[in-house]
Every structure is written in structure tokens, then in C-alpha cells.
Design a protein around this nucleic acid. Structure first.
Length: 541
DNA sequence: CGATTTTGACCTGCGC
DNA sequence: GCGCAGGTCAAAATCG
């Protein structure tokens, strides 16, 4: 893809994401923050932010812009409008949104701007100006065609992925039968065995495919795409819980390993180090709370308590009791350093509908887990290496921490820090901790709890190898567009990570099998239903 | 009386 | 093999 279009591409994707769910958990204020990438100075305090509305960005602009707008609508591709909306909204917000403006200026109006100055200075007649505008219009149309091609490519890839998903779901029953000993508790065997789903593939291919499927599964839970829902239902009919278990097998299958029946030891121990998949992920949430447990909307039953080493506060173990056999468990423990900080760790994915209050957290943890696992499956080495590298150099604060020292990947979402301060400080993980910190906008405090978690920067922590950010780490984070552009250019795996991030966003207006009424976020916006297709595709390329 | 919590025992993995 | 730590089980206790 041409260098110039990379920021456009990125912004295009983000516009899609924004257009999906502006009215649900992530309100406009949050969208705003996501685009400011932690640079906003009014995270919690500013009130009544301008709402993101369907409006014509170009309507108040010059006739030139209006022409562009009209040309961009000659198809039913409303993403452009969403993009326009975002630009407009953020423009009215002020400086933090210069990211967007920067993109527009460099991507579309760079040459025109200079031409405009020339025209103004030289006092050209309207006819000359008109021809200039027409040529510009042609350029913009060309740009639109590029984006349209991208969309077509995405749609095509999405269709292919759907087919892969269907095949994978058909293969699941046989695999599950031989592996699940205790279906009631959804306990699974080593995910390595699932590589048999596609014997002709290499291990790496299988891992990537599996992670992609997991992402699709996660996304299918989270939006209303009828096709994907149908596919998932087909899979459920063939094997109940199989669909949910795709993620579970990656993220929570270690639970209850003692009760698994004997299997041929084709486990991680026998695989080369570079082929050992990271088999589960944990999403840890740090939040200040005096209560013994944060309210996340789910029902939990305490099943154990232990004193953990190095912490005078006991660690409590809970399992989800909203459905029989739900594999989700969580640990709650107060921080040893700051006892006002409650650390809640989630593992697994719910196998049942969730109440609205629980969907945000569940989606976030699923997405984070999927992100970690898909990233680890695709490039475990890059993940761990990146973690170690970032721990000492990432020029952002700890909003999300990726731990490489744990036996499984753990992402810590730190809701205790003021993102404004955090964004400006250089966070360093204590020696030996092995964690990596990344900018991740979170919105818990604004909603009274860790319910709303930002997504846009998930991708940044997942797959980008150190070299991808090397040039970026050596300067101030002046432009996130530059950061992202460089990341895209330097790491093809970015797309997979981006897919996880986007799918996590899609998951927010959950309206799928949990029967929640959050469809308004995605359904009310014209042109949005196609967005998931676009998002999915990135994990396949 | 059912659901939940408590708590000691047990299991597993890992390092020495 | 042993000890340690993390995690889970399950009977008893407690709660509503």
C-alpha cells in the first residue's frame, strides 16, 4: 500500500470502529479519548462533550469539499461519512485531535493547500480555480477508489474466513469428543491437539488459523452479523459450546487439567520451543476500590482463598455461577504495594448470555485474551521479545501491562492511574517483572468501575516487534498517526492485532446471543453492518 | 433450606 | 525426591 495512504487506511479503519457503537458503553467522550491517545486533559472532568452525530463534514466546508463529499457517496459506502464525522467532532474538540487533522492535511490536501495559497496570492480567476478544483476532485476520487478497493479486498477476505470458520466448526465435534472429559465444566485438553484440525498445515499456520477463528468467534458473539451468527449456530448445533470453546480452549483450558483423561502426550513439552503455543491468557484489572470485589455484572462464587507469597492480603478465587459449567474464573487480591488497589484477574470466556452490566467487562477480557493469544500464536517470540524490549523504552505510561514473566500471557489494565499523568510519564517495570507497558486508554472511572475499556491501542502491544517501534521510541510521541503508520509499514502482523482490537470494539455493543438490547449502537448507523467484515479480514492477511 | 463462604487438604508444576 | 507456591476441591459453617 502506498505510504501516503497508510494513515488514511488507519483512520478509515478507526472510523469504521467508531461508527459501530457510538451509543453504548463507549460513549462519545471515550471515542474522543481514544483518538487523542491519552493526550486529553479532560478525561474525567469534561462534561457534555459534543456527540458524534451523523452529519456532513463537508457541508459547512468549501464547495470543493462538498464536491468531494458528493463523489465519495456515489456508492453506498458510508464509511466516508463516518470518517467525516470523526474529523468534525474532533476538530471541534480542539488540539488533541490534531492526529486526525494531520492525516487529512498530509493525505489529501497537501498539494491543494499550496495551490490554494498560490491562487490566493496570484488572484487567479474563478475558471482557473474551478479547473484546479476539478483536478483535485479527480484525485480525491482516485483516493476513494483506493479505499474502495481496500474494502473489496477486506470483504473478500472476510468471506474466505467465513468459510474457514465453517470448516473449523465442522471439525470441532470430532476433536472435542476425544478431548473433553468433563463437558459439564467445559474443561479442555491441550490446545496443541487441535492442530489436527488441519494436518496439512504447518504448526504455525494452524496456530494462526486457530487464532483467527478465535477472533471470529469472539466477534461473532459481539455483533449482529447474521451470517456469522448463523455459522456459529451451525457450529453450536453440531457441538454445543464448541463455538465458545474455541476461545476457551486457548484462554482457560488449563483449568482443571488434573481431571483430563489420558491423552497421547503431544503437548507443549514435546514441541520445539518456537512452536509451543501460549495456551491461556489472563486479563488483570487494577482498580481502586474499598469494596472486597469490583462489580462486573457477573455472579461469582468463591471457591477458595490462599495467601499468596509476597502479599499479606489473601487471594480469593471465584468462579462464574451464572451458568452451569461456565469456565470463567477470577482472582481477587489487593495490591501489596497499595491496599486500596484491587487486582482482579479474569480467565476464560463465558459460555452463557451475559447481562448488560457484564458484557463490557466480558468483552474486554475476551478481546484482550484473544489479542494476546492470537498474537502469541502468530508470533510468540515477537510477543515476548517485544515485552522485554518495551519494558524499558516505551514512551508511554502503564495503562496496559503485558507480562512476559508469567507462565501465560497476562495483560494488566491499570485503572488506577490518571491517564493524563500516565501519558506523560515514563513507566518502567521493576527489574525481573518482565512486563511491558503500553498506552491503553481506559474509561473505568468515568463509569464508576472498570466497565469501559478502550481498545484502539491493543494492537500496539500485541505483535509489533521491537524494531517496529524502534524509531518511534527514540522520539517524543508527537504523532500517533506517524506511530501507527510506521508500525503498519514495519510489521505485517499488525493487521492481526488490529483485527483483535477492532473486534473488541465491535464487541462492546453486544447484541448477539446474549439477547441484550445494544443493537442500537451498530444497527442505527447506516452503512455500518458491513464493518465487521472489514475488520475480520485483517486477521487473515 | 438452598446458596454461599470458609478453610484445610489435596493436586500439580517447578526449581533445587 | 523434596519443598514450595499456586490453584482447586469439598466438607463444614454461615447466611438470608
Amino acid at each position: 500500500m502506498p505510504t501516503l495512504t497508510i494513515p488514511i487506511y488507519f483512520f478509515f479503519l478507526f472510523s469504521l470502529c467508531i461508527s459501530i457503537s457510538p451509543n453504548t458503553y463507549m460513549d462519545n467522550r471515550h471515542h474522543h479519548r481514544e483518538f487523542t491517545f491519552l493526550s486529553s486533559a479532560h478525561f474525567l472532568d469534561h462534561i457534555d462533550p459534543p456527540s458524534i452525530k451523523e452529519m456532513d463534514f463537508f457541508s459547512t466546508s468549501s464547495p470543493r469539499d462538498h464536491k468531494n463529499n458528493t463523489s465519495s457517496r456515489d456508492t453506498n459506502d458510508d464509511h466516508y461519512q463516518n470518517r467525516d464525522d470523526q474529523h468534525d467532532t474532533h476538530d471541534r474538540h480542539g488540539s488533541p485531535t490534531r492526529v486526525i487533522d494531520h492525516r487529512v492535511n498530509t493525505g489529501l490536501n497537501l498539494t491543494c493547500a499550496s495551490a490554494g495559497v498560490t491562487k490566493a496570492e496570484n488572484g487567479e480567476n474563478p475558471e482557473t480555480e474551478l479547473s484546479s478544483l476539478e483536478s483535485e476532485l479527480l484525485r480525491l476520487q482516485e483516493e476513494n477508489n483506493k479505499l474502495r478497493n481496500v474494502l473489496d479486498h477486506i470483504t473478500k477476505s472476510y468471506t474466505q474466513l467465513q468459510a474457514q470458520l465453517f470448516i473449523a466448526l465442522q471439525n470441532l465435534p470430532q476433536n472435542m469428543e476425544t478431548k473433553i472429559v468433563d463437558p459439564g465444566t467445559s474443561r479442555k485438553l491441550d490446545v496443541v491437539n487441535d492442530a489436527s484440525v488441519s494436518d496439512e498445515k504447518t504448526d504455525q499456520d494452524v496456530s494462526v488459523s486457530r487464532s483467527n477463528n478465535a477472533e471470529v468467534m469472539s466477534k461473532t458473539h459481539d455483533h449482529d452479523d447474521p451470517q456469522l451468527t448463523k455459522l456459529l449456530n451451525l457450529g453450536k448445533q453440531a457441538c454445543p459450546d464448541a463455538a465458545e470453546d474455541v476461545l476457551d480452549r486457548s484462554s482457560s483450558q488449563s483449568w482443571g487439567s488434573s481431571k483430563l483423561e489420558e491423552q497421547p502426550k503431544t503437548t507443549a513439552e514435546q514441541l520445539p520451543a518456537d512452536q509451543i503455543p501460549l495456551r491461556k491468557a489472563r486479563v488483570s484489572v487494577r482498580a481502586r476500590s474499598e469494596a472486597p470485589m469490583i462489580s462486573d455484572g457477573c455472579q461469582w462464587r468463591k471457591y477458595g482463598q490462599k495467601m499468596a507469597k509476597g502479599n499479606p492480603c489473601p487471594r480469593a478465587y471465584y468462579r462464574c455461577t451464572m451458568a452451569v459449567g461456565c469456565p470463567v474464573r477470577k482472582q481477587v487480591q489487593r495490591s501489596a504495594d497499595d491496599k486500596t488497589v484491587l487486582i482482579t484477574s479474569y480467565e476464560g470466556n463465558h459460555n452463557h448470555p451475559l447481562p448488560p452490566a457484564a458484557t463490557a467487562m466480558a468483552n474486554t477480557t475476551s478481546a484482550a485474551a484473544a489479542m494476546l493469544l492470537s498474537g502469541s500464536a502468530a508470533s510468540k517470540e515477537s510477543l515476548t521479545n517485544s515485552a522485554g524490549y518495551y519494558s524499558s523504552t516505551i514512551p508511554y505510561a502503564s495503562m496496559a501491562t503485558l507480562s512476559a514473566s508469567a507462565p501465560f500471557p497476562t495483560i494488566t489494565l491499570d485503572l488506577t492511574q490518571n491517564p493524563n499523568n500516565a501519558a506523560m510519564q515514563l513507566h518502567r517495570v521493576p527489574p525481573g517483572h518482565g512486563g511491558a507497558t503500553f498506552p491503553l486508554p481506559l474509561h473505568a472511572a468515568a463509569s464508576g468501575g472498570p466497565h469501559l475499556l478502550g481498545h484502539p491501542l491493543f494492537f500496539q502491544q500485541k505483535l509489533l516487534p521491537p524494531q517496529a517501534l524502534m524509531p518511534l521510541l527514540q522520539r517524543q510521541p508527537s504523532s500517533m498517526v506517524e506511530t501507527v503508520s510506521a508500525a503498519i509499514a514495519s510489521d505485517p502482523n499488525f493487521t492481526a492485532a488490529l483485527a483483535a482490537a477492532i473486534s473488541s470494539i465491535i464487541g462492546v455493543p453486544r447484541g448477539g446471543n446474549d439477547g441484550n438490547n445494544n443493537n442500537s449502537g451498530s444497527g442505527a448507523i447506516p452503512g455500518s453492518p458491513q464493518l465487521p467484515q472489514s475488520c475480520t479480514t485483517f486477521s487473515t492477511n
